[in-house]
Amino acid sequence: MAQPDLADLDAFTAVARARSFRGAAASRGVSASSLSDTVRRLEAALGVRLLNRTTRSVTPTEAGERLLARLTPALADVSLALDEVNAFRDSPIGVLKLNVPGAVSRIVLPDLIPRFLAAHPGIRVEVSVEEAFVDVLAAGFDAGARYDERLEKDMIAVPLAGSQRFVVVGSPAYFEKHGRPTHPREVLGHPCIRHRFPSGSSYAWEFEKDGEVVRVQPEGPLVTNSGELELAAAEAGLGLLATFEAFCADSIAAGKLETVLDDWLPPFSGPYLYYPSRRHMPAPLRAFVDFVKAERK
């Protein structure tokens, strides 16, 4: 029997852990069909089925489970051995896989990632954007970015950006027609543009002033998970929008949007880069953590 290719074994472990060709393909930046072909090639070489496939699920067979159990630590050792060579380079090489929410991808990373890659040309960064909280290790990522209220206690967390702030904005034409709310509860009398998360929920708009906290769940004509569509709708006068100040800063500067209730919206801590505590940190991740820490000094 011919020895399977190491890359094929690694591809199989990614699919088996994700229980999905599509999910594994997304995290690796390849097509689901190419992963399917790779696993078929591996099964043919070994002469045994490793995965049970249906239209809705992918699960390892008994043989697949046993192979996965042995391969996981073995491939980790191979990765560790190769990564230790990185310590002898002036700049490390490899892939850094990050999982971040939309706000971080739109506000923080556009400035950070180009400068990091300019400093480390041997590193390739792969960024997956999703709002759902995931197990970064199980999903094949090196690190994630989340806000402090969603961080697991056993994770190492490093501030990724400074404090941020939410604002409530509307277009000048909107305010001319509907007036300006002067208290958070008055928002309930205005049409609002809502953001919906993958879970189907929409966050409450939270305000705070002099120790008083007010949370409201406004309604409106548009609910979406697209920040760009939300911003365009607000500029068109469709309703009020609560969003990150940095996300709409250009629209405010251009006079397309104006803020209200500013004294009810204090700044809050920005996102954190988080990653599991482990004895050896991959060189690309170590380089990124060091870069982020230097940025925050």
Rank of each mutant, 00 (worst) to 15 (best):
R215E: 14
I107R: 03
D90Y: 02
L96E: 01
E208P: 09
A294Y: 01
A18H: 07
A32C: 04
G162K: 07
Y174A: 02
R279N: 09
A87W: 04
R124A: 11
S20Q: 04
S163G: 11
H178T: 11
V158Q: 07
A32R: 13
G211F: 04
I156G: 03
L96R: 00
L151Y: 00
L229K: 14
R150Y: 13
V58A: 08
S251Q: 12
P184L: 02
A26Y: 08
G220Y: 03
M155C: 11
E208A: 12
R150A: 14
K256S: 14
R22W: 05
L68K: 07
W205H: 03
S202V: 11
D210K: 15
V292H: 08
S251G: 09
H183P: 00
T59C: 10
I193P: 00
R106L: 14
S105C: 09
A132C: 06
A74L: 13
P284Q: 09
K209Q: 10
A249Y: 09
A233R: 13
P282I: 01
A14I: 06
V48F: 08
W264S: 05
F175N: 05
G200F: 02
D148G: 11
L231W: 00
E208R: 15
D111T: 13
P191T: 02
S31P: 04
D290N: 14
F12I: 04
M1Q: 13
V216C: 01
Y274N: 13
T61M: 09
R22I: 03
Q3N: 12
E149C: 04
D83R: 08
S79F: 01
A24T: 05
V78C: 02
V260A: 10
A236M: 09
A287V: 09
V78R: 12
S34G: 06
D135T: 00
L261V: 11
E228C: 00
L238W: 08
A132V: 14
L222V: 12
A69N: 07
P221Y: 02
A76L: 05
N225L: 10
A157Q: 12
R28M: 13
V48M: 08
V100L: 05
S128R: 15
E149W: 15
V15K: 10
L273Q: 10
F21H: 01
E130L: 15
A87L: 15
A161I: 00
A161T: 04
P218W: 00
S27N: 10
L238P: 03
L241G: 04
L96K: 00
A32M: 07
H183M: 03
F88D: 14
A242C: 14
D83M: 05
K153W: 12
E230G: 07
I252W: 06
G239M: 06
L6I: 14
K297Q: 15
D210G: 08
L42D: 01
G239T: 06
G255L: 10
A157H: 08
P181E: 01
G227C: 01
A11K: 07
I107M: 11
R89S: 06
P271G: 06
L109Y: 06
T59I: 12
A161G: 07
P73A: 07
L265W: 04
I156A: 05
V39N: 03
S27L: 08
A139V: 00
L71I: 07
L240M: 12
V129R: 08
V125Q: 12
G189W: 00
L112W: 03
P172M: 01
R278L: 06
E126S: 15
